[in-house]
């Protein structure tokens, strides 16, 4: 309940300041436009559109998800939060915020993709949606933890994607495979191993985040 209150505070603050939403929206629009312009009339394979989808999702996440902690640090309110809540409360509150943001972002990107790319054809929609859900959760969990780490650094903007890349790489590679399976119309049973990897990744990152956050949060 307290974590939900942290989320509510952040959400209300976000609606007023538009720290993350504007950055995300602009990044999504610009990236998809650049891809469309660079492709032009050239025919591209549907596998490539699937790959590009995760490139857009990864970089969009990098542009907006760090704001949960960076905005607190920039406004000097980190101490305030330390004084009113336990570290686990803050971690889960920020995680709920990033989960919502990632889900909105992924829905927007996938919707735009479906409209703008003719070759983006998903044969097994169920498998694709489950992958999208588990993948988004993984991105949100990892990004929240990394955002807390980089928030106190001077070179936040550079450090965030650099630190995130090796941590998100196994997740992105698994998602690329699952997207390919969805495009080929493979069954759930066929992609089961990869789905199990996604679930394991989410559980491991969530546990690591919960255990490590205390050390990151305190100076």
């Amino acid at each position: 309940m307290k974590a939900y209150s942290v989320f509510k505070k952040d959400w209300q603050s976000e609606l007023r300041t538009r720290y993350a939403i504007n950055a995300l929206a602009m990044f999504i629009l610009v990236t998809i436009s650049v891809i469309l312009f660079s492709i032009g009339d050239e025919p591209i394979s549907n596998y490539l559109t699937g790959g590009l989808l995760w490139v857009v999702i990864f970089f969009s996440a990098m542009s907006g998800l760090s704001r949960v902690f960076v905005s607190e640090e920039e406004r000097g309110t980190t101490l305030t939060l330390q004084l009113i809540a336990a570290p686990s409360t803050v971690f889960f509150g920020k995680l709920i915020f990033n989960l919502i943001l990632v889900f909105l972002m992924v829905i927007a990107i996938t919707f735009l993709y479906a409209i703008l790319f003719d070759n983006f054809i998903i044969e097994n929609l169920g498998l694709f949606l489950v992958s999208l859900f588990l993948g988004s959760a993984g991105i949100a969990i990892s990004s929240t933890l990394i955002a807390a780490i980089i928030a106190k650094a001077n070179t936040k903007g550079t450090l965030y994607p650099v630190l995130s890349f090796p941590i998100l790489l196994p997740l992105i590679l698994t998602l690329l495979e699952l997207t390919k399976f969805s495009m080929d119309g493979e069954s759930f049973a066929f992609g089961w191993t990869y789905l199990a990897i996604l679930v394991s990744y989410d559980v491991v990152m969530l546990t690591a985040g919960f255990l490590l956050f205390d050390f990151i949060w305190k100076e």
């Binding site: 307290k2 505070k9 007023r16 309110t77 939060l81 809540a85 509150g93």
Partner: peptide
């Protein structure tokens, strides 16, 4: 620092809930 984007009442409400 407290939250500049909230009113005094909103700040205190959020603090109580958190």
């Amino acid at each position: 620092m407290l939250y500049d984007e909230f009113t005094a009442n909103e700040n205190l409400f959020h603090f109580a809930k958190i």
